[in-house]
Simulated scan of single mutants.
Amino acid sequence: MTRLQTAADPDRVIAAARRWLGTPYHDQASLRGVGCDCLGLARGVWREVVGDEPFPIPPYSRDWDETGCTEVLAEGARRMMIELPVADAGPGALILFRMRPGAIAKHVAILTTPDRFIHAYERLGVIEEPLTSAWRRRIASTFLFPIL
């Protein structure tokens, strides 16, 4: 990240994410109250907090076991957001999860407190839940929403 220097207000990020609570799960969608997946939730929060999305999101696979050498989500986030060490992530941070060892990071959430996060989960929709040790060990990278 070179040109984005200032992080968005974490309270604003969290408030935007909480407005999505209860939105049904819908693969590759991003419409609050109608449907979204985990990336669609992050895209919606981006639109509210930062502004227009900087580029269209191409179709993507739902396969959490997908392997490869390209971390597409992390690379995309690095182009637009402020990366920080996982240990430094606090409320308002975007979290990327690697769901299986050796797989690429394919799940996205927003940290709301040091121990809770919001994400879109199949069959449950957008929910806020505890960041348990099972979730913590899957964190691959973390980012802050910028102010452009």
Rank of each mutant, 00 (worst) to 15 (best):
R123D: 11
E71W: 05
E75P: 01
Q28C: 07
W20P: 09
R138P: 00
R47P: 00
E53V: 15
I110E: 00
L148W: 09
V49P: 05
M99A: 10
V126C: 11
L94D: 02
D52K: 14
D88F: 08
L31H: 10
L144D: 09
G102E: 12
G51C: 06
E53A: 12
S141Q: 07
G92W: 01
V108I: 08
R19L: 12
A105D: 03
G102C: 09
A17W: 05
A29R: 15
F117A: 02
A42R: 00
I139F: 02
I104M: 11
A120I: 05
W64V: 15
E83T: 11
R47A: 14
E75M: 08
F97M: 03
L39S: 07
W20N: 10
A42V: 14
D115L: 09
T112Y: 01
H26W: 10
Q28A: 13
R47I: 02
E75N: 14
I82C: 02
I118P: 06
I82E: 03
A16M: 03
L124A: 11
H119P: 04
L39W: 08
E71Y: 05
Q28R: 14
G35Y: 13
I118S: 04
I104N: 09
L31K: 12
A109W: 01
P24A: 14
C36D: 04
H119W: 04
R19K: 14
L4P: 03
L94M: 14
S30C: 12
S133L: 04
L124S: 11
V34K: 11
A89I: 09
I82W: 04
Q28M: 14
A42K: 00
A15P: 05
C38M: 06
A15D: 14
L111R: 12
G90Q: 13
K106C: 07
P24S: 12
E122Y: 09
H107M: 02
L148D: 10
V50H: 02
L84P: 05
S141N: 08
R136P: 00
V45T: 07
R123E: 13
R62L: 13
R137C: 07
T2Y: 08
L39G: 05
P54C: 07
P54T: 08
R62I: 12
R123S: 13
P58V: 07
T112A: 03
D63Q: 13
I147V: 15
L144G: 09
W46Q: 05
G44H: 04
E129K: 11
P130A: 14
R123P: 02
R138I: 03
R43M: 13
R3V: 13
A93S: 15
